[in-house]
Design a protein around this nucleic acid. Structure first.
Length: 264
DNA sequence: ATGGTTGACCATCAA
């Protein structure tokens, strides 16, 4: 037995309801984690997804910004959420499957343009968010947990189109990569995507501002699938659905998939 | 150094 999970920054779930439905129909993951829903929960088109078999959902929303949802064909129990940095942002929600696997869905702050917290408080917020993740993960002995989402950082040199040209660009600066690595280490999280696909360039996001995103291919891997060591080895078939970036009126992110050979 | 695009909301802000 196994289950397949996907994570996708949808950039407005109301505007792109049709794209979500297409993904659910064509790819049929058991669980889909969405970020940047940009909607209160009561305005998310959850009935449309339920009609496709995704009858279970836990979500947190707010008007215009942020917003995270976990859609599932398998029964879910709401496993709570945390108000990171105490700002009231809908950037995290967690759900447990009946087999006890807990799925955390994160939307880490993008961090603004300038990678300097003295002049850009959004960058400070991003670093503080990652530090809080580190502290909350530290000392836990987590088992059967999965963490996915738009972490807004491309940590490896082959997670970006040009390591050298992005060293001072928010999402790939050394201080962000260090903060992310410390949070990852504190929870003993395994980067499932890179354990599965250790070699080669891998991107999940291409800017809207690039006129020919596919040919230019100036991408970054901002979207991640992590798992605790006890189940990370059960993961396989990781992939990024690059095609979705070319769908009509697309999100600037592509969905990331992984399958876990864990009984459900 | 600058501007390029998009979404939500309705003049800007966030990404």
């Amino acid at each position: 037995m196994s289950f397949t999970l996907a994570t996708w920054n949808i950039n407005s779930v109301r505007l792109r309801e049709g794209l979500v439905s297409r993904l659910l129909t064509d790819e049929a993951p058991d669980v889909l984690c969405l970020q940047e829903c940009k909607s209160p929960v009561e305005k998310m088109p959850l009935q449309a997804f339920a009609a496709l078999g995704y009858t279970h959902c836990v979500a947190r929303g707010q008007k215009g910004y942020n917003g995270v949802a976990i859609l599932s064909k398998l029964p879910l129990r709401d496993a709570g959420h945390h108000d990171w940095c105490g700002k009231g942002d809908a950037r995290h929600v967690a759900a447990a499957l009946e087999n006890g696997v807990v799925i955390h869905n994160f939307y880490v702050p993008a961090g603004g343009d300038k990678p300097d917290r003295e002049i850009n408080e959004k960058f400070g917020h991003k670093l503080d968010f990652l530090t809080e993740m580190r502290y909350r993960f530290h000392g836990e002995r987590p088992e059967r947990q999965i963490l996915v989402g738009d972490l807004n950082i491309a940590p490896r040199e082959d997670d970006v189109w040009s390591h050298k040209q992005l060293l001072k660009v928010v999402s790939h600066t050394p201080v962000e990569v260090e903060h992310l690595g410390e949070a990852q280490d504190a929870g003993k999280w395994v980067d499932v995507t890179r354990a599965d696909i250790p070699e080669g360039r891998l991107y999940s996001w291409w800017s809207y501002r690039s006129p020919d995103w596919n040919a230019a291919d100036k991408g970054r891997r901002l979207d991640h699938v992590w798992a605790t060591p006890d189940i990370a080895g059960a993961a396989h078939s990781s992939r990024i659905l690059r095609d979705a970036r070319g769908w009509e009126q697309p999100s600037d992110h592509a969905p990331v998939f992984a399958t876990f050979d864990v009984d459900v």
